[in-house]
Amino acid sequence: MTGTIEKQTPPQQIRFRDKKTMIIKCPYCGPRDVIEFTYQGDATRQRPDPASSDQTAWNAYVYDRTNPMGSHREFWLHAGGCRQHLIITRDMATHVISSVGFARDAVSSGREGDRP
């Protein structure tokens, strides 16, 4: 069969992520299994000024990640629920979640994220 590579892509596999690990208390939906959530990355990084061409700053934002053994702030999307992004403080060693809030609130109040 001719045609493009794109057309021959095999069907997507659905993977079940039965992690059986955590319950996240979504401020909108209540306590839900982690399976409903999608990890969306480090919430401590600072996005450079959008007009900046400072490659060091952009490199740090896009690639540099610390892997602290202990408390860490991170974005999670409640993909199988209210679809709000949350900021979660999680202990990387024990997975204990000490705080959950809407990302919007935290970012708007200037504690996280970047300058628009």
Binding site: F75, H85, F102, A103, V107, G113, P116
Partner: peptide, 22 residues
């Protein structure tokens, strides 16, 4: 077609986490 879900999530991320003022 293939990227529809990803693009939605990409846009949601920027509205929630980067530009909540918009």
């Amino acid at each position: 077609t293939a990227n529809a879900g990803n693009v939605m999530q990409h846009l949601e991320f920027y509205l929630d986490c980067v530009w909540p003022d918009l």
